[in-house]
Amino acid sequence: MSTPVATAEPAARTALQNDLLCVADTKLVLGNWFAECVMNGKSLPDFAAMLGMCTASYGQTRAIYHWLDTLDHSYGHLEHGRGRAEIRSMDLLDPAPENWQDFIVSTWLAEQATWSMASGFLRNPDRTVAGIARKIGEEAYFHLKYAAGWFRIIEASDEEGELLRASVTRRFPLALRWFGPLDAADDLHAAGLRDDPLPDIRAGFVGEVRSALKPFGVDATGVEATFEADWRPDARRTGPLPERLFEVIRFKDQEIAR
């Protein structure tokens, strides 16, 4: 059965798959962040929450891979066959967390950015895409609340607040970079495959970040992303995934992974 996406113009069809693969791969790396950092959780209930967010992130990744498999990709290749230059995760998650505050800020920014991007597909003509976007939103509610809970604890300490501000300074421009240059055309919105223009979605993301960081005295106004020569618009990232990170996130054994 053909879907609205399957019959879309080739450029728009490819652009939609690109953006969803960027969301899926970012969730793959984000899930691995939770898995790798779970033993840094602060208590047994915290371990459970981090593992829950890990599996939810993997679930979103796999749901998108399955949808891509119905179009121009192969599920097996997406999950097991790609090298580090083919992974399309957010630059923000390339550097490992430096401390607990940096972990909370980084995962929160990644979650907020991917949910903002996914929210642009809530009314997508392809019902599967709209359903995946809705599911990402439902799960983002808890993931963002987890960060909000930790923000309240961090806010109570001057020293921890300083570490949070340092993390925001490093990571927020990388989160903005994920949305691409401000003057880039949004072909997906023009083709009717994204509900709102990407600049509006980016502005919504910035608004959420500013609001959440207000108690910390962080003024995110005027922060802009920079783009290196090896910025890849179709991957929404710069260059290949770092080697060490790729070793963490890649499936080591196809048979065991089943």
Binding site: S43, P45, D46, A48, A49, L51, G52, M53, F142, K145, Y146, A148, G149, W150, R152, I153
Partner: peptide
């Protein structure tokens, strides 16, 4: 029941523990 330092973390921990 869950142990948590504030209401936000209590909601998240409850959601993932009693799933």
């Amino acid at each position: 029941s869950v142990e948590a330092p504030n209401d936000d973390l209590a909601q998240v921990r409850a959601w993932y523990i009693y799933d």
